[in-house]
Simulated scan of single mutants.
Amino acid sequence: MSPYVASFIVFISIFLFGMATLRIGLKSLSNSRMQEFLYQASSTPLRGLMTGIIVTSILQSSSAVMVITIGLITAKVLTFRQSIGIILGTNIGTTVTAELMTLNPDQFTIPFLLVGFLLLQIRKQLLFSIGTVLFGLGSIFVAMHGLEAMAVPLSTLTFFEHIINESNSSLFYGIGVGTLLTALIQSSTATTGITMSFINQDLLTLPSAIAIIYGANIGTCITALIASFGSTKEAKLAAYAHVWINIIGVTLFFPFITKFGEIVAYVTALPDAQLAHVSLLFNVLSSLLLLPLTGVLAKTIEKIHKGNHLT
Rank of each mutant, 00 (worst) to 15 (best):
73 I>E: 10
210 I>K: 10
181 L>P: 03
56 T>Q: 08
287 S>M: 03
100 L>E: 07
264 V>M: 02
206 L>N: 00
293 L>G: 01
93 G>P: 01
115 V>G: 04
164 I>K: 08
54 I>M: 09
288 L>C: 08
134 L>W: 11
275 L>R: 06
295 G>A: 12
37 F>Y: 15
252 L>R: 05
146 G>C: 04
116 G>C: 02
19 M>S: 15
266 Y>W: 09
170 S>H: 07
7 S>T: 09
157 L>V: 05
72 L>E: 03
88 L>K: 00
99 E>C: 08
142 V>R: 02
136 G>A: 01
96 V>Q: 04
150 M>G: 02
248 I>M: 02
300 T>L: 15
31 N>G: 12
78 L>C: 04
23 R>P: 00
80 F>Y: 15
72 L>S: 05
262 E>S: 12
5 V>T: 10
99 E>R: 06
36 E>N: 11
276 A>V: 01
282 F>L: 15
174 G>I: 11
205 T>N: 07
68 I>A: 14
181 L>A: 13
183 A>Q: 00
71 G>Q: 12
210 I>A: 09
88 L>P: 03
271 P>A: 00
58 I>M: 14
303 K>H: 15
230 G>T: 13
186 Q>R: 08
27 K>Y: 13
279 S>L: 13
163 I>V: 15
153 P>A: 04
2 S>W: 13
134 L>Q: 04
190 A>D: 02
54 I>E: 12
159 F>N: 10
6 A>K: 13
195 T>L: 02
165 N>C: 03
245 I>Q: 08
219 G>D: 12
255 P>S: 06
1 M>G: 14
189 T>N: 09
191 T>K: 06
50 M>D: 00
24 I>N: 14
279 S>P: 05
181 L>K: 11
134 L>E: 00
24 I>S: 14
93 G>A: 06
265 A>F: 12
29 L>Y: 05
91 N>I: 03
26 L>Q: 05
188 S>G: 05
92 I>G: 00
309 H>G: 03
177 V>T: 10
204 L>V: 03
249 G>E: 14
59 L>N: 06
277 H>W: 15
188 S>R: 08
212 I>H: 06
68 I>N: 10
203 L>Q: 07
274 Q>L: 11
234 E>L: 05
72 L>F: 12
49 L>R: 03
59 L>P: 00
4 Y>Q: 13
184 L>H: 12
190 A>E: 08
160 F>H: 11
203 L>M: 07
126 L>E: 12
301 I>E: 06
33 R>E: 15
269 A>H: 05
142 V>D: 11
25 G>A: 07
119 L>V: 07
179 T>M: 13
206 L>G: 02
57 S>K: 01
158 T>Y: 11
156 T>S: 15
83 S>V: 00
118 L>R: 03
44 T>N: 06
117 F>G: 15
169 S>V: 02
226 I>L: 13
293 L>S: 12
53 I>T: 08
171 L>S: 01
65 V>F: 07
248 I>P: 08
120 L>S: 05
55 V>R: 05
43 S>N: 08
5 V>N: 00
17 F>E: 06
270 L>R: 15
289 L>W: 10
151 A>E: 06
151 A>L: 07
255 P>K: 05
283 N>W: 03
